[in-house]
C-alpha cells in the first residue's frame, strides 16, 4: 500500500456507495454514511480515494484542532493568539481520513487531559482525540455495529452538530469537529439499534460484483496500481480532475439549489407511503436529492434526483416487519415507482 491513493474514477462498480460518498462530500452535514454488507468491497480504499480527490485544505501548522487558516473567525484560542502576533503559519493538506477502531477508548476518541503536562507541571492542557483529528475530513468506523452504544451516540452527536463538547475531569471546552462519519458493518455479526440507524444520514448496502469480468477488471486495476502507483494514478488523472471540478462547483451551487413545493410534497408522500418514522427521513431525502441536483449542475431539485436519493435516505428508516423478507431497498424502490411513477 503506497502513499498514493487509488484513483476514485478507477473504482469498478459500487455505484450506490460512490453516490453516498459524493453527496456527503458536497454536503458534509448530511449526517454520515452507513455501509452494510460484504467484507472486502474496498470501502476503505474508496474513502481514501475520495479524500485524495477533494481539494487540499489550508490548515494551521501544528494546530491539534486542524483550524482553517483562511477563516480567522473560527480559529481556536491558541491560533487566535498566533494570528494576533502575526506568526500563524499554514500548510496545505488533503482532507484527513481517520480510522476509529473498535476498542478505542473514550479518551482517545474525545480527547482528554494531557497527563504528562498535568502531572509534571500542574498545567491542565487538553490533548485532542480522534474527533479533532477528523475535523474537515472523514471518520471511518469499521464494525460500527459492534461499537459500544454510548460511543456511537457520541459520534453521531458530534457528526450532527459539528462540535465536540467535553465536560469532565476539570475540563470544560468545545472544539469544532466537522467530519463525515462513515460506519460500516456486516449484518451477520449483529444489527444496529433502530434508534442509531435512523441517525445516519444515508444508508448503502454494499456487495462485491458477482460476475467474473468485473472481478477480473478489479484485480487487474489493483495489480496495475500496486506495480506502478504513480503511473496508474497518472493515467486516471484527467477523469479524477474532472470529477474534482464537479464536486467543487456542486459545493458552491448547493446552497442555491431550490426544491419546489411540488417536490417537497412528493417527498412527504413518499415517506408517508413507506411509513418511515419521523422527520429525519424527509430531511435526509431532500438534502440528498439537493446534493444530486447540485452535482448535476441543476438549479432545481427534479424528480430524477428524488428517485436516486430515496434508497439512500430511506431504506434504513423503514419499520421492520420480521415476516417481510423483501429487502428494504426493494421496498423503497417499489414505493418510488408508486409515488413518482416509473
Amino acid at each position: 500500500m503506497p502513499d498514493i491513493a487509488f484513483p476514485f474514477s478507477a473504482i469498478v462498480g459500487q455505484e450506490a456507495l460512490k453516490d453516498a460518498l459524493l453527496v456527503s462530500a458536497i454536503d458534509p452535514n448530511l449526517g454520515g454514511v452507513l455501509a452494510f454488507g460484504d467484507r472486502g468491497t474496498g470501502k476503505t480504499t474508496m474513502i481514501r480515494s475520495l479524500a485524495a480527490l477533494l481539494p487540499v485544505q489550508s490548515v494551521v501548522k501544528d494546530c491539534q484542532f486542524r483550524c482553517d487558516a483562511d477563516r480567522p473567525a473560527k480559529l481556536c484560542e491558541a491560533c487566535q493568539g498566533l494570528s494576533k502576533e502575526g506568526t500563524l503559519k499554514s500548510v496545505q493538506e488533503t482532507p484527513p481520513v481517520i480510522d476509529l477502531p473498535l476498542g478505542a477508548t473514550e479518551d482517545r476518541v474525545l480527547g482528554a487531559i494531557d497527563l504528562e503536562r498535568a502531572l509534571g507541571r500542574g498545567e491542565i492542557v487538553f490533548e485532542a482525540g480522534l474527533l479533532a483529528a477528523a475535523h474537515r475530513g472523514f471518520l471511518y468506523v469499521d464494525e460500527v455495529n459492534l461499537l459500544d452504544d454510548h460511543l456511537v451516540d457520541i459520534l453521531l452527536d458530534a457528526a450532527a452538530s459539528g462540535v465536540n463538547r467535553i465536560e469532565r475531569e476539570g475540563l470544560s471546552l468545545s472544539h469544532a469537529a466537522d467530519f463525515v462519519l462513515i460506519g460500516s458493518g456486516n449484518p451477520e455479526e449483529g444489527e444496529l439499534r433502530p434508534q442509531l440507524l435512523d441517525r445516519f444520514g444515508v444508508f448503502v448496502e454494499v456487495s462485491t460484483p458477482r460476475d467474473v469480468a468485473s472481478r477480473v477488471e478489479i484485480i487487474k486495476r489493483r495489480q496495475a496500481f500496486d506495480e506502478d502507483p504513480e503511473g496508474f494514478a497518472k493515467s486516471w488523472k484527467r477523469k479524477d480532475a474532472a470529477l474534482r471540478k464537479r464536486i467543487v462547483t456542486a459545493r458552491e451551487r448547493r446552497p442555491e439549489v431550490v426544491a419546489s413545493d411540488e417536490i417537497l410534497e412528493r417527498c412527504a408522500t413518499l415517506c408517508l407511503s413507506l411509513g418511515s418514522d419521523g422527520l429525519r427521513g424527509e430531511l435526509a431525502l431532500i438534502r440528498t436529492a439537493t446534493g444530486f441536483a447540485a452535482l448535476a449542475g441543476k438549479e432545481q431539485v427534479e424528480t430524477a434526483h428524488l428517485r436516486r436519493a430515496a434508497p439512500l435516505a430511506l431504506s434504513h428508516r423503514l419499520r421492520k416487519d420480521p415476516l417481510d423478507e423483501t429487502k428494504a431497498i426493494a421496498r423503497v424502490e417499489r414505493a418510488v415507482e408508486d409515488v413518482l411513477g416509473s
Binding site: D38, R39, G40, T41, G42, S207, T208, R210, V212, R215, V216, I218, I219, K220, R222, Q223, D226
Partner: peptide, 27 residues
C-alpha cells in the same frame, strides 16, 4: 488475463465474496 480469470472464477465458485481474496491469490 487467463490466469486472473481462473482465480476470479475459482473464488466465485467457492462463494468467496471479498475482492481482497482474489487479489491475495494474484500476488
Amino acid at each position: 488475463e487467463a490466469a486472473l480469470t481462473t482465480i476470479a472464477a475459482a473464488c466465485l465458485s467457492l462463494g468467496i465474496r471479498s475482492m481482497q481474496v482474489p487479489i491475495f491469490c494474484m500476488h
